[in-house]
Amino acid sequence: MHPAASIITFTTLSGLGFGLLVFLGLGFPPVEGLNAFIFFAVAFALAVGGLISSTFHLGHPERALKAFTQWRTSWLSREGWAAVITLSVMGLFAGLIVLFDLRIAPLGWLGALACLATVYITSMIYGSIRSVPRWAHWSTSAMFLAYALSGGALLSGQVPAAIILLALTGIGQFVAWQAGDARFAASGSTAETATGLGHIGKVRLFEAPHSGGNYLTKEMVFVIGRKHATKLRAIALLLAFAAPIVILLLPFYHMLAALAVLSHLCGVLITRWLFFAEAEHTVSLYYGRSAAA
């Protein structure tokens, strides 16, 4: 799948933002006053910034409000609702703390739960696409949630929790990559089933419908960079998890906290790039690209 910058930014930033809001909602740390204002401002900037960036992907962003109508079947529509509801709840929780020094803890818990639900719903936009076997698996949601939680722990300065969550997410991502590599083959879709001609013999594309590219090949038969996938995976694990963990283990991590966050952010951006670039769509079977390419 084509790794569009707007969607990579959207999932990365909003994931981090909602992750931070989870911890703030649960009262880790129990912020107040100016401190609370700064923490919540960062969290909202990330979450809202990500959501705004996702609209750059649309052909007709001016009609975006219509996307709220089909929540019964569409995860993308549910995502819109979840984000609005969650941000309202957390906005109220944050506003009361910042303006009136009033902390209604259950409201925060509710908000934290809503944040997790929002991240889950975002993940299901991808996890429900059966024609991309690498995504169509529960691990997609598990990883989105794990990323949000570990990033949130890191941003909210919950050092022991962050170390554990980062380590677990890193291991989880490694396993998810390995398992994901075999999933297209396991889906059973091949050039033979795509054409229904497997009973005659081995099917190979002889001539493409046209000599140039098209929307489908650009959007869904993206292959550039897959050959560097192993290197990129290693770099991503290093930046997103290993480096921040090492920094947090140092005695003077306070000064380097920003560096840990930056490193994590860069690492997550790479994993999200890979999330799209490595995802093979069944339409590639009609264009002579085997899943293993």
Binding site: H57, G59, A64, R130, H281, T282
Partner: peptide
């Protein structure tokens, strides 16, 4: 007139039967 051009339907189709128009963006 309702399509926002998000492209999700083209992803969901296993067959590549939907294409976003490069000019109209629907």
């Amino acid at each position: 007139t309702d399509c926002i051009g998000c492209g999700l339907c083209a992803w969901a189709c296993p067959y590549g039967a939907r294409e976003m128009d490069p000019v109209e963006q629907v």
